[in-house]
C-alpha cells in the first residue's frame, strides 16, 4: 500500500503528485500487479485534499493502463513500470556511483545536475 505525501508548495498540481508517486512506487516495486491502491476516502482522510483530485489521478493512471477500477472493490494495479526494481543490479551500481560521488566531495545538487545531464543525453526525445 502506498501513502501519498502532498507538497503544497511544489508547484506541481496535486493530482499529478499522486500520479507521479504511484508511478514511482511501481518503478521501485513497492506496488505490484494485483495490489490495491488506497481508496479515495483513505487518501483524503489522511491528506485533507478534495476527493475529486484523487479520482482524477486514478482516472489518469487507468487511462495509461497502469491500474483498473473494479466496481465496489477498489482500484488495482494492472502492470508494473520499468525494469529497475528496488534491488536490481542497476540500482546497486548507481548506489556505488552515488557513494563515490559523495566521497569525491560532490554536493547533492552537483550530483543531481550531473545525473540529469547524462539522463538528457541518453534519453533525448523520449517521453518522460
Amino acid at each position: 500500500m502506498v501513502e501519498y505525501r502532498i507538497d503544497r508548495h511544489s508547484g506541481v498540481a496535486t493530482y499529478v503528485q499522486i500520479v507521479q508517486q504511484t508511478k514511482q512506487a511501481l518503478r521501485l516495486g513497492l506496488l505490484e500487479p494485483g495490489d490495491r491502491l488506497p481508496t479515495a476516502r483513505e487518501v483524503v482522510e489522511a491528506t485533507a485534499i478534495n476527493p475529486n483530485t484523487v479520482l482524477k489521478a486514478y482516472r489518469e493512471l487507468e487511462r495509461e493502463g497502469l491500474v483498473e477500477a473494479r466496481r465496489g472493490l477498489g482500484t488495482f494495479v494492472r502492470r508494473s513500470l520499468g525494469t529497475a526494481p528496488a534491488d536490481s543490479p542497476l540500482r546497486t551500481e548507481l548506489e556505488a556511483w552515488a557513494e563515490r560521488a559523495r566521497t569525491a566531495g560532490l554536493e547533492r545538487d552537483d550530483v543531481a545536475a550531473l545525473f540529469t545531464a547524462v539522463l538528457d543525453k541518453h534519453f533525448q526525445g523520449d517521453p518522460s
Binding site: 502532498i6 503544497r8 496535486t14 476516502r41 483524503v44 482522510e45 485534499i49 478534495n50 476527493p51
Partner: peptide, 25 residues
Amino acid sequence: MAQAAQYGTTIVMSSHVVAELEDSC
C-alpha cells in the same frame, strides 16, 4: 473530505484565508 468521499456530502465552507481551502475545495 472523508465524509464527502464516502457519502457524496456537499460541503460549503467560508474563510478569508484562501490557502486554507485551496486543496480541499
